[in-house]
Computed example of a mutant assay.
Amino acid sequence: MTKYSGIWPVAPTPFHPDGTVDYEGMKRVIDCMVDQGNDGICILANYSEQFLISDEERRKLTEISLAHVAGRLPVIVTVSHFATQIAVERAQHAKDHGAAMVMMMAPYHGALMRGTAEQTFEQFARVGDVGLPIMVQDAPLSGVDLPVPLLLRMAREIEMVKLFKIECPQTAAKLRALVAEGGDAIEGPFDGEEAITLLADLEAGATGTMTSAMIPDQIKPVLQHFAAGDLTAATEAYARVLPAVNHENRQCGFRSAKAAMVEGGVIASDFCRHPIAPLHPQTKEALFRLIRPLDPVVLNWGK
């Protein structure tokens, strides 16, 4: 497997029931993710509820998380922002505190303010000047179209743009084109969306995946079997986890990992800040019904 490969889940951000950030709980989240056998960790991404966190909380979470990881795993810090200056400052802060790389979406704000292709290229180039590898997050949330020719130009002309997290519709088709046309410039083709399309994406050339922190230890064998050339075993491993992954992707979203971590004694609360509603009891019950038979690390870690 390549340098940029394997499973790099997104760390959830725990909150106390009063809505304040649980910084000690964040350390336990990190420890659990290390014990899950992950290849890396991503913090402050969409599944970390980055859009519900203040700038000061982001700064503290970055510093606390990187200090607590203490080199046990490489860490990706998400630095997306519409303002290029702020994205650069976030990237520099991450670098100063030991991040292995940063992840960014294209610049956007709301439904109507979206960076053009040239503005997007320029923002990534300026963040690249910080000197950390960049993962381009091609996510529908931004509403910004990132066609393959633009991604190829970024990979070829911006030295630090090395990884691509593709999670748009028909991910496999885009990954296949990106890998075929980009060659060695595409050092880390990844997928996301909780691995809901993982097997097809691996066949299209993905070397890694960025899931949630719910059951990455159970998803990782799919990548390992595929890398070993055993498509039958990879397919069986994928079929084993797919019902849980589907329920997470379609019913729970980022609330699932925190619910599982509460159930397993990793953190004390699965609180999400308003306007995010808590999981419906039936939805949560179905989640546990699907993940308990898998016996993931998260359900046993704190017990």
Rank of each mutant, 00 (worst) to 15 (best):
P243I: 12
K174M: 15
T78L: 10
L242V: 09
R90N: 14
T62K: 05
A277E: 14
A233M: 04
A234P: 02
A45L: 02
K27V: 00
P216V: 13
R240F: 11
L52P: 00
D191S: 15
A177V: 04
G188I: 05
T13C: 05
D55L: 08
L151A: 04
A234I: 04
A172S: 12
H247A: 04
P293K: 02
H97M: 08
L44D: 12
Q123P: 00
T120F: 00
P17R: 06
S54Q: 05
A106Q: 02
H81D: 09
R289Y: 04
L141H: 09
V21H: 05
T209K: 04
Y47F: 15
H109Y: 15
N249S: 11
V136M: 05
A91F: 04
I158L: 02
K60V: 10
D35W: 07
R114H: 14
H247G: 01
L52T: 08
R153C: 05
I41M: 07
G71C: 11
A200Y: 14
P293T: 05
L175E: 02
I30K: 00
P147A: 00
H280M: 02
H274V: 14
L290W: 06
D138Y: 07
C32T: 02
P133H: 10
A45M: 04
A257F: 11
S48C: 11
R58T: 08
H109N: 10
E118K: 02
A100E: 08
E89Q: 13
Q36I: 00
R58F: 15
V102W: 03
S256K: 01
S54F: 10
Q218M: 07
P147R: 01
Q85E: 14
A106Y: 03
L242F: 15
R90I: 01
A227Y: 10
V130C: 03
G265M: 05
L163W: 12
A111D: 15
A94L: 11
A117R: 01
M101N: 02
R126Q: 09
P140D: 13
F124I: 04
E24G: 00
V34S: 03
R58P: 03
G25K: 03
A257N: 03
G264Q: 10
I276K: 13
S256V: 08
H93A: 12
I64Y: 10
H16P: 00
M104Y: 05
E236L: 15
P107Y: 04
L299A: 11
I276S: 09
F124Y: 12
A172Y: 11
S48Y: 12
R289S: 15
Q36V: 00
G110R: 04
P281T: 09
H280P: 00
F82V: 11
Y4M: 08
K165S: 10
P9I: 15
G128L: 02
R255K: 14
S48F: 12
A213I: 14
L202Y: 10
E194P: 00
H68I: 06
D191Q: 13
R292H: 13
T78K: 05
A83R: 09
A213Y: 14
T207W: 07
D201R: 06
G110Y: 06
E285S: 14
R255I: 06
V79A: 09
K258I: 07
Y47E: 11
R273Y: 08
G253N: 00
D145N: 05
H93R: 14
E285G: 04
H280V: 01
H280L: 09
E193M: 13
L66W: 07
S269Q: 08
E57L: 06
A260E: 09
A100I: 01
L223H: 10
H274Q: 14
F82C: 07
A45V: 03
M135A: 10
S80W: 02
V144W: 01
L198R: 06
